[in-house]
Each structure stands twice: as C-alpha cells, then as structure tokens.
C-alpha cells in the first residue's frame, strides 16, 4: 500500500465527512465515529433520545455515498422474513421466486431496532456477523459494503425490547449523539427554515471509493504492544467488579480495526494509543452486562470502561 492510496482514502473520508456536516451540525465527533466503523467494516448502533438526529445522520451518510440504501422501520409485529426476504410462488411460471428483503443492500438503516421482538432482531445476526444470509437452506451473499446503522431509544422507554447480548456484540460501536449547544440548534432551525438540507445533499463518494478506503484501513499498521493494550482493556472488563458479562474477543477485534480507521483519518499510517483510548468506550461499553445490583447503585458500563482506561497503564 503506497502513501498515495492512503491519501486517496483519507480524501474520501474528508469528502464524506464534509458532506455530512452540511446536515449534521455540531456532530463532528459522532460523524468521525460513524465513518470509522464504516471504514473498519463494522456496524453502528445509535442510542439516543427521540429527535436528536439519529435517522438524519444515517440518511446523510447514505446520501453521501453513491450506494444502495434501504431502511427498515422496526415495529413489534415485524417478522424475520420482512427483513431477509421470502420465496413467493409465481402463478405464471409455476415456480418459487425469492424476493430479496431489505437486507440486500449496501447501507441498511434499522430504525428503532429495539421496537421489534428479539426474534426479529436476531434475523440480522448472520447478516451482520458474516455478510451473508441463509434463507430456505440457501446461502446468499450480501454486498461487499454491507453496513448497518441501527437506531434505538433508551431501553427504559415504553414499547422497547432490550437487544440480546449476541445482537449487541454484532455492533462494532454504539454511541450517542447528544443534544447540541443552543447556538448550534439555532443554526439547525435556520437551515431548515425553508426546506430540509438533506434533500439537497449530493453524493460525495462512490461505492468503489468507500471500498478502497476499507482496503486502506486494513493496511494501517499496529504494533504488538498496542494490540496487547487493546486486549488488556477488553479483558479487564471481564474481571471488573459489578460486571456480570465482560466484553468478547470480538470487541478487541473491533477496537483494533476502528482504531486503524481512525489512524487513517488522522493522517498517520500506524495506530497510536490515543486512537484506542478514544474508541474504547463506544466499542466496548455496550457489550458489557452489569450485575443488577451494580446497575441499581448507579454504575454504568461507560463508567466501568472509563475506570479501566484510567487504571490501566497506557503504552507511551
């Protein structure tokens, strides 16, 4: 991999990020995280209160890339076949034809994913984990850039099902957008005075650009010491007090890959400790399950990971 390839990949990132920031004001950090997950080949779960711009961010990303985009609005009566697709008997040629579900796309927006039952949520497991689906005994590959952005409301809200741990683990990152500052919010109002800016959004990169970016990320170098640091961070969650279930090795892999992506965005061709530290909370925290007592006493998974970050010696 030559420096020009890195530069081209970085340029792709910058173009997409600039495009998204036209719509998403004051969410540069979230955009960066989102693109890091995209470049690292992971999926993203956005959890936040209603109206903070989760869906807008997903749509802005989809529009910025010249790629197929589908969205599923998750409802309690949604069925797995509504996601994966179903074979329908054709009267005309007396045969079953497979009708591809929304999962056969490049970018999939799973809106309010925790409003569907766990059974339906689980339909995404294979697709997200392995980039393929098995329907009626037949294996079908998904697109090379299969990227899921799921949004959800906090679990405490009415009419939600908590995501199963296995499903949670399939998401490379989970982060929140949060409320923007008052000045930013005024700017959002001004921008939407006449029409929504997202409607004018043009694509900034092609599918090939994004796939090239993914290739570039794979070639970012990471030293054994930092791999060890990532593993130690993840392993520490398994022994932390108040934790029922620690993070899996899949978390360490995701941490490494997203850190590589972030290093690419930062303009260096090797990973530094800061990138791992920055991503530790969004990558690890959602995979950790707390003991009920610890949760009641106010401990959060974010707190657990931040505590580990503070205590574990960082390579310097």
């Amino acid at each position: 991999m030559t420096p020009t390839n890195f530069d081209a990949a970085r340029a792709t990132y910058q173009k997409i990020a600039a495009n998204i920031s036209k719509v998403m004001r004051g969410q540069d950090a979230a955009t960066r995280h989102l693109l890091a997950a995209l470049a690292a080949g992971g999926h993203v779960l956005l959890e936040d209160y209603p109206g903070t711009g989760k869906t807008t961010l997903a749509k802005a990303l989809a529009k910025s890339i010249d790629a197929r985009f589908k969205r599923i609005q998750f409802t309690p009566d949604l069925l797995p076949s509504d996601i994966l697709g179903v074979s329908i008997f054709s009267q005309r040629d007396q045969e079953f034809h497979f009708h591809e579900g929304p999962v056969f796309t490049d970018i999939l927006l799973a809106d309010e994913i925790n409003r569907a039952s766990p059974r339906t949520q689980s339909a995404l497991l294979e697709a997200m984990g392995e980039g393929q689906v098995s329907v009626e005994g037949e294996r079908r590959n998904l697109s090379e850039l299969f990227f899921v952005i799921a949004t959800e409301n906090p679990v405490e809200f009415r009419g939600t099902y908590p995501l199963p741990e296995a499903q949670m683990d399939r998401f490379a990152m989970q982060f929140t957008l949060g409320y923007v500052s008052a000045a930013e919010e005024v700017a959002i109002l001004t921008a939407q005075e006449h029409n929504h800016p997202i409607e004018e959004l043009k694509s900034a990169a092609t599918l090939a650009d994004v796939i090239a970016m993914k290739r570039a990320v794979e070639n970012i170098r990471i030293s054994p010491e930092l791999k060890r640091y990532a593993v130690d961070l993840v392993a520490a969650t398994r022994t932390a007090s108040g934790v029922q279930l620690g993070a899996s090795p899949r978390a360490s892999i995701a941490l490494m890959k997203t850190a590589q992506a972030l290093a690419l965005f930062d303009g260096v061709d090797f990973v530094a400790p800061e990138q791992i530290q920055l991503l530790a909370v969004p990558v690890i925290a959602h995979r950790v399950v707390l003991e009920p007592q610890a949760r009641f006493s106010g401990l959060t998974t974010r707190g657990v990971v931040e505590d580990i970050l503070k205590k574990l010696r960082v390579p310097a």
């Binding site: 400790p273 800061e274 530290q277 970050l309 574990l312 310097a316």
Partner: peptide, 10 residues
C-alpha cells in the same frame, strides 16, 4: 506528572 492511564498526547 502523567497518571498511568493518560496517553502522551493528552
């Protein structure tokens, strides 16, 4: 002084 959990850049 630098606490053990703080990276050099920070």
């Amino acid at each position: 002084p630098r606490p053990p959990g703080e990276s050099l850049a920070d």
